[in-house]
């Protein structure tokens, strides 16, 4: 196993709703190493989303330690967190969150706009490379409404890749997709993972979690179960085993 990318120690997060305090995370410890493909699972209210927000540097823990790629986020302010997100993290959301009426290429370029080091030309070539990696180079001038759900999610994945993040955080990335397209997306993630990308995938679907290498199950703010996937499914093979669209008669 490679070096440690994420280290979380006794992490707690409380929310104050009126006079009630909700303990969303009650002391989480976990370590994620480079090249892992981790599924964070749990029912709604289990704390997995809160965990993802903290892992994504969108939220700060009430107490405990979170070290991302040797950087502790404890004392960072909003701006520093934004810079950290820009340089180290890639996000993939359930609802894609692409800018409407904006081409795939421009959507993919977006994170690079917040990195003043890159020139317009560099931006474009990096974005194009990322689109190629997700197999959508030929669709670079299409806007989201001209793309299918799966294609939109692939654009979003390309967007998460452009800043060469140390970890990609996917939040229910297959939640809006049918089985076939889900498998396609998972195949893409597996491919990226096989090329060394560290991926954290939040899901509540056990059959999606089978594609990952390790499952961490949350419940009531605790990690209740943590297991390596013994028989990891290959999404590409599963995809091929599905009946092909062409087999149907329309």
């Amino acid at each position: 196993m490679g070096r440690t990318i994420i280290q979380v120690k006794d992490l707690k997060k409380d929310f104050h709703v009126g006079e009630v305090t909700v303990h969303a995370l009650r002391g989480i410890n976990m370590t994620i190493e480079e090249g892992e493909f981790v599924a964070i699972m749990g029912t709604s209210g289990s704390g997995k989303s809160t965990m993802l927000n903290i892992l994504g540097c969108l939220d700060k823990p009430t107490s405990g330690q979170y070290i991302l790629d040797n950087v502790s986020m404890a004392d960072m302010n909003r701006n520093q967190l934004a810079i950290l997100r820009n340089s180290k993290l890639g996000f993939v959301f359930q609802s894609y969150n692409l800018l409407p009426r904006t081409t795939a290429l421009e959507n993919v370029e977006l994170p690079l706009f917040y990195d003043s080091q890159k020139s317009a030309k560099e931006r474009k070539s990096i974005a194009l490379e990322a689109l190629e990696a997700v197999g959508l180079a030929d669709r670079m001038h299409h806007t989201p409404n001209q793309l299918s759900g799966g294609q939109q999610q692939r654009v979003a994945i390309a967007r998460s890749l452009v800043n060469d993040p140390v970890v990609i955080l996917a939040d229910e990335a297959t939640g809006n997709l049918d089985t076939r397209t889900s498998y396609e997306i998972m195949a893409l993630f597996q491919e990226l993972n096989s090329r060394g990308k560290t991926i954290i995938f939040v899901t509540h679907e056990p059959d999606i979690a089978r594609f990952t290498s390790r499952n961490i199950i949350f419940r009531d703010g605790h990690i209740t179960k943590e297991q390596y996937v013994s028989e990891r499914s290959n999404a590409r093979m599963m995809l091929n085993s599905l009946p092909n669209n062409n087999d149907y008669d329309y």
Binding site: L58, A82, I83, S87, L99, L110, R159, N163
Partner: peptide, 8 residues
């Protein structure tokens, strides 16, 4: 989204 991908 812009904030998530690094917009301050």
């Amino acid at each position: 989204l812009r904030m998530a991908i690094g917009g301050r």
